[in-house]
Design a protein around this nucleic acid. Structure first.
Lengths: 110, 110
DNA sequence: TATTTATATCGTAATATTGCAATATAAATA
DNA sequence: TATTTATATTGCAATATTACGATATAAATA
């Protein structure tokens, strides 16, 4: 059916999935890495960085923004993008949970 | 066209994307959370936990396994699953990088 | 060995994602 | 105000994902 049964999962599970899914594309990883490198930049810079057409980059930026992972502010007729701490904080806790679990358990399976 | 242009991105970007994408579904988040809770369990337990049919759960387990996030060992005629530290370590570094960047930068955008 | 139990695979329908050309929008500038 | 510059949106084709019934496989057990 192709439709995820979101209503059967908890809000937390759905939120984490939305965040991870947004990160789960190499172009969006590249955008995040570039924003870390230059701190903030206008959309056109990202178009020049990536091997993708402008509408495609715009779409990836939109998805990152919808997930709460980046922010965009108008700066003249351009839009300045940067990472959004809020989104990353939400998923950070999940990975810290996993990490501390994995550190404490015996490293054998079953 | 629906096909990701993986060949235009770095190996690291593609690897991170594969891992994040595998995590990016509520059912797979639920599986990871359950494995943390019970340490390890057979597939049937997960089928009972999730609101999904057995073939669907099997498919999600396969994706997590392919991404290197879980392992499965035969245990009689059942298969015992648990988290795979290796996969989570790969993505851990990425989030630590982001976290330390966000902690050090001024919290304003552009 | 026939049956049961546990899991995987196949096939398929419904939906989502990716990518881009064409076009729209909106601010800056000539 | 007409043009340029920067970004978003629309529409569409190609591909991927999600879900599950039916079925296959493989170990355990009667």
């Amino acid at each position: 059916m192709g439709i995820t049964k979101s209503e059967h999962f908890t809000d937390e599970q759905n939120e984490l999935a939305v965040l991870a899914k947004a990160i789960g594309h190499p172009a969006r990883i590249a955008i995040i890495q570039h924003l870390i490198k230059v701190n903030s930049c206008v959309c056109g810079d990202i178009v020049n960085e990536l091997p993708l057409a402008q509408p495609t980059v715009s779409q990836h930026l939109k998805e990152l923004k919808n997930a709460g992972l980046i922010r965009g502010n108008f700066e003249g007729n351009a839009i300045c993008y940067c990472l959004n701490e809020e989104g990353f904080n939400k998923i950070k806790g999940f990975f810290q949970h996993i990490t501390s679990y994995l550190e404490n358990k015996k490293n054998q399976c079953c």
